[in-house]
Amino acid sequence: MKYLSFVLAVCVAITGAACSSKPKAKQLSPLALMEGGVKPQAITLTEQGTHAYQAKQFEEAKGYFAQAMAAAPQSGQAHYNYALALNALGDAEAARQHFLEAANLAPGDKVIWDSPALAPFGNPTSPKAYKEHPYGTSRPTIGGGPR
């Protein structure tokens, strides 16, 4: 009976440890450009940038993605890919601008909007939090009326 209790306790401990471990962060991948209305050159540059990004050659990927973005400036995916490379290189502020631009250019693209890369930068449509009093900046008076 003691042996069975010991085995059961070990199994519970192993199962608990396996369940409590944090899942690894999902590796972010560049997005393919939508072929409708995008120059073939932009698609080729994006493919080259994707290969460089996956090889962790972020500076090279940034160059390809910048060229793809110049060839397809209205592509949310192009801005997203460029932002991924900027983010990987540690340029968080520039990455933020391009993540937001990608979200604005691709309003229905759930991959862009739900991306963990965009999440730290907040919802671009929500108003910024202000430190001002919510009812204005006038000073309160006794009785709540105007002076």
Rank of each mutant, 00 (worst) to 15 (best):
N123G: 13
G108M: 12
L45E: 05
G16F: 01
K110L: 13
S75Y: 03
A83T: 04
L28W: 02
M34R: 12
P107D: 01
G76S: 03
P23Q: 07
A52H: 02
V38K: 02
A55C: 02
A72V: 10
D114R: 11
M69D: 10
D114Q: 14
G36N: 11
T125L: 15
A42M: 01
G37F: 01
L28S: 07
I112P: 00
L31R: 00
P23C: 07
A88F: 09
Q54G: 01
K110H: 08
N81C: 02
A106H: 03
K22I: 10
D91Q: 13
D91M: 09
Q77Y: 00
A129S: 15
T125N: 15
N87K: 05
G63C: 03
S75V: 08
A94C: 04
A61Q: 01
A106R: 05
K56P: 03
L31E: 01
Q48E: 14
E59L: 13
R96A: 11
L33K: 03
T50E: 02
N87M: 07
V111K: 05
T44C: 05
A52N: 05
K62T: 08
E60I: 11
K128P: 14
E47W: 03
Q57S: 07
Y80K: 06
F99E: 07
P120L: 09
D91K: 13
P107N: 04
N81V: 09
P30H: 00
E59K: 13
K22A: 12
D114A: 12
G122A: 10
T15W: 08
L105G: 04
S29R: 08
A119W: 08
S126E: 14
T50W: 00
A94T: 15
E47T: 13
L45M: 08
M34I: 13
G36V: 10
Q27W: 05
F58A: 03
G37V: 01
W113K: 11
G36Y: 09
L84A: 09
T44N: 09
A102H: 01
E47Q: 15
F121R: 06
A119V: 14
T125C: 07
A42E: 02
H98S: 10
K22C: 06
G37D: 04
E60Q: 15
L31N: 01
Q27M: 05
A102F: 06
L33Q: 00
W113T: 08
P30Q: 00
H98L: 05
L89F: 09
L100D: 15
G16K: 08
P127W: 03
A119T: 15
Y80R: 02
K22N: 06
Y64R: 11
A18H: 11
A32N: 06
I43S: 06
Q57M: 11
G63Y: 06
